[in-house]
Computed example of a mutant assay.
Amino acid sequence: MSGGASALTGRTAVVTGGGGPLGRTLCAALAEGGARVVVVDRDGGLVDQALAELPDGDHRGVTADLLDADALGSVVSQVERLGACDVLVNNAAFTGTSGVPGYAVPFEEQTDDAFELALRLNLTVPFSLTRRLLPLLRRTGHGSVVNVSSIYGLVGPNMGLYAGTVMGNPAAYGASKGGIAQLTRYLATVLAPEVRCNAFAPGGIARGQADEFVERYEGLTPLRRMATEGDFRGVVRWLASDESAYVTGQVIAVDGGWTAW
């Protein structure tokens, strides 16, 4: 996955959740490939921070809570005013560490409200944004949708990893990320040939988790380490560009081999 410095020159890439740790890295990778990046996040401060980290270019920031229907519509309108969307990266999501009541708690304590909220952000929003931005994606003839799934969209959770820690693995996370994998396959078939749709499924990213969790996780990973955000730079740039022009409908695990055994 080479993705040269000019692979995305002249193209506009919209990245949701672009202010978070992974989102900022994805934005930077696309900008370094030559794209104009539209950073979308609900936290305006994080949007500004992400923009400040990008190489020079006509990059834009959009502050919006994607769970708000009006804000979601505003994102679409602002992108439409730019007149271009060659790449859409659906990255915004509740993760296992999101502080939503009734979400990352033992299964018996998980609530319907938290489940539905996570499905809205993790699955319904990517569906809606892709649908609404489709005219722009189609216009270019090389539109690319890149969804962010997870290893837990491919396999079930190993709950033993979390024993003795405050961490959890909510049902809504795996269900929504599995849904993203299937939505990716659906979109790949119905949007072809003008628009490609793929996803990548990250493994666990090292973010200061409890030592016992990290030790267990690394012991179950062939490459014997957790991921860093930088491990996903190449895959997003490759899937966004014409270097993957004959690739669609795929969910690429970037997990150090976690799902290989």
Rank of each mutant, 00 (worst) to 15 (best):
G160M: 07
V145N: 03
Q49N: 14
V37L: 11
Q250A: 10
L220C: 06
H59Y: 11
L161V: 01
N169G: 02
E116S: 12
G23Y: 12
A29W: 15
P222M: 10
S98N: 06
I252S: 11
G33Q: 08
A84E: 15
F127P: 01
T221F: 12
R36D: 12
C27N: 14
R81T: 13
G160V: 06
E218G: 02
P222G: 11
Y217P: 01
L123E: 03
P193L: 04
D255W: 07
Y152E: 02
A69W: 00
A28Q: 14
E229I: 02
V125N: 00
Q49K: 14
T97Q: 08
P222Q: 11
L30M: 10
S77R: 12
M159A: 00
N90F: 01
D41I: 11
R132Q: 14
K177S: 01
G17N: 06
R216A: 08
G234S: 15
G4P: 12
P193D: 02
L191P: 00
Y186S: 07
V254S: 09
W238R: 08
A31S: 15
T111I: 01
V105R: 05
M1A: 11
V247R: 05
V145I: 13
V235T: 13
A188C: 04
G4A: 12
L136G: 00
V15R: 13
L129K: 02
G17A: 06
G256F: 07
H142K: 10
P135I: 05
D68H: 01
G99M: 10
N158A: 11
V166M: 06
M226K: 06
V39W: 11
R24I: 04
G153K: 08
Y162M: 08
G219L: 00
C85I: 04
G178F: 03
V105D: 01
D242H: 05
S2F: 14
A31E: 12
L137K: 04
L239W: 14
V214P: 10
V15A: 08
L187K: 00
V195S: 03
W258R: 15
G96N: 13
E194M: 01
L54Y: 15
A52I: 01
A35Q: 05
G168H: 03
E215T: 13
A71N: 08
A210E: 15
G57L: 10
A104W: 02
G102L: 07
S150K: 03
R225Q: 12
N169H: 13
